[in-house]
Design a protein around this nucleic acid. Sequence first.
RNA 1: UCCCGGGUAGUUCAACUGGUAGAACACUGGACUUUGAAUCCAGCCGUUGCAGGUUCGAAUCCUGCCCCGGGAGCCA
Length: 597
Amino acid sequence: MVDQGHDQTTDGSPGESIDFIREKVVADNAAGRFGGRVVTRFPPEPNGYLHIGHAKSICLNFGIANDFDGSCNLRFDDTNPETEDHEYIEAIIDDLAWLGFTPAGEPKYASDYFEQLYTWAESLIERGLAYVDDQDAETISAQRGGFGQPGVESPHRDRQPEENLGLFRQMRDGAFADGEKVLRAKIDMQAENMQLRDPVLYRIRRVPHVRTGDDWIIYPTYDWAHGQSDAIEGITHSICTLEFADHRPLYDWCLAQLDLPSDKPEQTEFARLNLTHTVTSKRKLKELVDTGSVDGWDDPRMPTIRGMRRRGYPPAAIRAFMDQIGVAKTNSTVDVELLESFIRTELNDTAPRRMGVVKPLKVIIDNWPEGQVVMVEAPNHQANPEAGTRQVPFSGELWIEEDDFKLEPPPKYYRLSPGQEVRLRAAFFITATHVDTDADGNVVAVHCNYDPESEGGQAPDGRKVKATMHWVSAPHAVDATVHLYDRLFIDDPEGTEGSETDPAQVLNTGARETTAAKLEPALADCQPGDVVQFERLGYFAADLDDSTVFHRTVGLRDEWANLQKRRDNTQGSGKQKGSGQNKNKKNQQKQKNAKSQ
RNA sequence: UCCCGGGUAGUUCAACUGGUAGAACACUGGACUUUGAAUCCAGCCGUUGCAGGUUCGAAUCCUGCCCCGGGAGCCA
């Protein structure tokens, strides 16, 4: 298994802190359960693209397999032909590989087991443990009862095995219309756990299946397929999210009815990942795509694997993040800032440094010899001399960042302003003298003088400047389109989960700002997907299709921006940070409770 | 209303299963700096949901309560 970045091995030695699932595995191994084998699986339904939430499950399942010298399968849970598609299968295989994980053997499919599942269903019927019900979905649902309310047994519940077997075979052979009959497990209509009130095992659906085409018109439900698929593949630890906890008794019941060659797999649930400012609901993400709120599943603003890939997130950083947040049963919301901090940490080590001006302002050096161009040598990575240097052209006409000049500098501003001397990175000291303005009084160019003695960025007299700024020589600049991103969602969008709030309402329509940037010539050599640091601005990824387009992966930490934000906050509205949100959440919950009672 | 799960710094997780509640991120300050970055040091943050009980000693065990999440698809 390919597995960069996971050097952690777990032997359960005391002092080492491991999550509750790994603890369980350690205990199982110590007890000799499963003969010491550890086999997990990642079981997506191929009905959408993978997102950051799936990445947690992937890292968990593959991580455990790796830690315990086991293996992890990729299995498509393709039991519902209505929503599934090849497009998704291929994308999932691709995304998984990109994340850095290699499944054991070929991808598996629940549909590979349809025949076996069918045979097992017949054996259930023969033993009087399942029956064919003629009632429609609405009736079955009503009879199921409610929380604390008794269930009502179907009039067909006591059909004899021979009759059930005949009907079930007719179901498979097409004698009935879609929805006319179902196969149900005969468990307990009074069970406190709703999942046990005679759950549906098979339904009739005349929809071509991605893989089996028209071979079948009856399809097993999740509950009848999942545990058995695990068992067939010899899965030992079946790890899923919390909402399946109520299904566990059913998972166990199904397996208990069957004669299995090996130990029964064990289901364990963990809390799914919630991120602030992020939606991780397939339905809502699809809505964003369908309504054109984003460019597609791979829009760099999307929390999909493909979105993050286009955005320039390194897979190693995503893995490290998942290791850090750990695994628990507590419902929790992780701050996206933590993810971003891992992205920065990784990119800080790996991304070559370059200069790019994202919002250009013209600088004219009045005392620069007309037409002269010199090459200056700039390091590719300050902290890593092995990364080498590059030659960057310098001339009398430059682009600098709009934010780096102020006609009237605020306190503690030590970038360029009239009379202020600054260093241009790896080049010269310059001092602003005067500006050109347009008819509206906007600054269109800053005139400066340079110090010829300061070549390379150091004055012979040893005088210091407070600011070092990036720049690009105007005649040599490479034009590029740069996308700057903000959070896709203004507020915590998962707070609206359960209500019918349109994700579009919390959508930050200003999440993408596009600028015409001026880049140093070396940036023309970027290959699609390359991620570099534009010094002082952040990390930028060359687009996968067009490497003259750059996406800002993540900005650098910016203390100057923080300082200004704080200044604004203390001056203006004294808005509290967390309390408002919490209150909203509580109110929503109250409303929700009121509704359901 | 019934069942299941959960509640520990701002956030995510720890706490060798009864022995001084720690780490990361965030935040604050300092050092260094040709990125207001990175790096390095230091600091701040806790009535462990609440109230009782057992104990020399409780985040941990017991009782009651509160709050949050999930569950009544022929979705997964």
